[in-house]
Amino acid sequence: MSMVTIVDYGVGNLFNIQKAFKSIGAGSTISNDPEEIAGSSKLVLPGVGSFEAGMTALKESGTDEVVKDFAASGRPLMGICLGMQLMLSTSEENGKWAGLDLIEGKVVRFTESKDTQENYKIPQIGWNSISKPTGMEIDWNNTVLKSLDPTDTSYLYFIHSYYVAPADEQSVIAETTYGQDTFCSVVMKDNLVGCQFHPERSGKVGLQILEAFIGA
């Protein structure tokens, strides 16, 4: 049995996640087999592209229910980028779409830069820093962010037009500011964690986050 299974539901670049795990000495399997997913000890839900396409692909491949069952089992599940967004209840991307509803909340679009002084583009493509949400008492030591120094600036690689807005503010363990929005860049609820950035493409800092997930 592989330690980590990366859910293959037909979208996104899963190979770089597998290569990143390999580079930190962790074996992983890319799979769409319900039994294999259900039997793994840790699960990664990757994904790029649109919410609608991602959700449709999850349903069509029959992996949506398997992922939900896995989440309910209490074993560690990490959503990355679109994979994180799919964990929420709904998305406003191109209409209104239902997600996996593992974490209550919605997925919303960045505020446009029109009529503002600041020049920024959508999608956000590039490196941005994450920090503890202001006014919140959160200890990163018990999270996948444990190797990061909260007093230092850590940059991670983002590529997205939408972000998650969890209903429970306590589940936001890191936030990031882009343009006019300060958004949830890492969400955590019990055994579930979601990263808006790509840890597999965020240099050493990103690999440390994956290491912490493996060790969780």
Partner: peptide, 25 residues
């Protein structure tokens, strides 16, 4: 472990698939 963009000679959806599978972002 940083993003990689690949350019040159990409003509079809299959070309894109191949490069993404090889590791291009």
């Amino acid at each position: 472990a940083i993003p990689l963009t690949v350019a040159g000679g990409i003509r079809t959806i299959e070309d894109v698939t191949d490069l993404l599978r090889a590791g291009a972002d």
